[in-house]
């Protein structure tokens, strides 16, 4: 029973043992005295009771680590194990040496193309990020002019023109896009300048729109906003939110997205996608499921119902390709 007294003081006993200990204390004055001594004995520990604050953003980094693992797990493909060749008895060393030298040369020659490809791949990612930053300058200017709102593709023009790609004509109409911006990701196609203003778009008939719809935002995706009981809401720069975790644009989604696959954008060979966030930073994400500002994870190309439609909440980001409707 005496051992329970410390637990009683620390509130570490289960309810039955606690009641039992209370009864024991009531009828035993010596135990009460012992309790008082124990209380005094524990008192010095109180001096170090204060806990340290966690570093800012710890939970975000934790979710990012889990998301990274999650995506690595999803994207890993079993590799075929190379069959080990049987050791052969060396009979003629000169011939073997020649073979080794030839192998080394072959290996070196085989290594050069992948190295070059890797350099080209990295260069394309950076070029794409620079291009997205150019878009951000225009988007940021637009939001400054429109009380924090980014182009709202659901409301900018009526159906059937209300597609994600119309954010480019909206920016063109206001003369905000820099001259060197391209609607094609540098890794995916030739540089293509935006072609249509909002005026041009509205003068197209449905057939013409169908034919040119992929040219609007080219190989990029843009936010479809979200829809709740209050109606449709476009993307908005909100100082009270973690804008560094809210994507606004990215490389376009894979074509087979409706099949529910978890593949990445085709722009960079399926290895990942550049994502532009509302605070202006751009990151190459090897996975499309990212930590979201409300906690948890969010597929940037699908809403919570796994549909290419407007999100279901302010934290449910959906980046649609040029032809996607909110």
């Amino acid at each position: 029973m005496d051992e329970n007294l410390i637990g009683y003081l620390l509130n570490a006993l289960d309810s039955d043992t606690r009641r039992e200990t209370e009864r024991y204390l009531q009828r035993n004055p010596e135990a009460r005295e012992q309790l008082s001594e124990l209380r005094q004995a524990l008192e010095p520990l109180e001096a170090d009771r204060e806990t340290c604050d966690p570093p800012p953003g710890l939970w975000v980094r934790t979710l990012a680590r889990v998301a990274e693992f999650q995506c690595r797990q999803l994207s890993s493909v079993p590799r075929r194990v190379a069959a080990r060749s049987e050791t052969t008895h060396r009979t003629w060393w000169r011939r073997a040496d020649v073979l080794v030298a030839a192998s080394v040369l072959l290996c070196v020659s085989l290594m050069i193309p992948p190295i070059l490809a890797k350099v080209r791949y990295q260069r394309d990612i950076v070029a794409c990020q620079n291009n997205l930053h150019n878009f951000y300058f225009a988007l940021n200017d637009y939001s400054s002019r429109h009380h924090g709102n980014f182009p709202d593709v659901a409301k900018a023009v009526p159906a059937p023109f209300n597609v994600a790609g119309n954010f480019v004509p909206v920016l063109m109409e206001e003369g905000l896009l820099p001259g060197d911006v391209s609607v094609q990701c540098p890794a995916y196609g030739k540089s293509t300048h935006p072609q249509y203003t909002l005026h041009d778009l509205l003068n197209m008939d449905a057939e013409e729109l169908d034919g040119r719809i992929w040219n609007l935002a080219g190989s990029y995706a843009y936010s479809l906003g979200y829809r709740d009981a209050g109606g449709e809401h476009g993307p908005r720069l909100d100082p009270s939110q973690l804008n560094s975790m809210r994507p606004i644009m990215a490389d376009r989604p894979p074509r087979d997205i409706v099949l529910g696959t978890i593949s990445n954008s085709p722009n960079h060979g399926g290895a990942g996608q550049n994502v532009l966030f509302m605070d202006g930073h751009c990151t190459f994400c090897p996975q499309r499921v990212l930590p979201c500002s409300a906690g948890g994870f969010d597929d940037i190309y699908l809403n919570q119902d796994n549909q290419v439609q407007a999100g279901r909440s302010p934290w449910d980001t959906v980046l649609g390709d040029s032809a996607a409707h909110p």
């Binding site: 806990t51 340290c52 934790t62 979201c292 906690g295 948890g296 994870f297």
Partner: peptide, 23 residues
């Protein structure tokens, strides 16, 4: 399948568990 619930758990324990580990 509600992924936000995991984030909520991380946030709920951020201070307590970090404090424990720090100590």
């Amino acid at each position: 399948g509600q992924s936000e619930a995991f984030g909520a758990l991380v946030r709920r324990y951020e201070r307590e568990l970090y404090g424990y580990l720090r100590r």
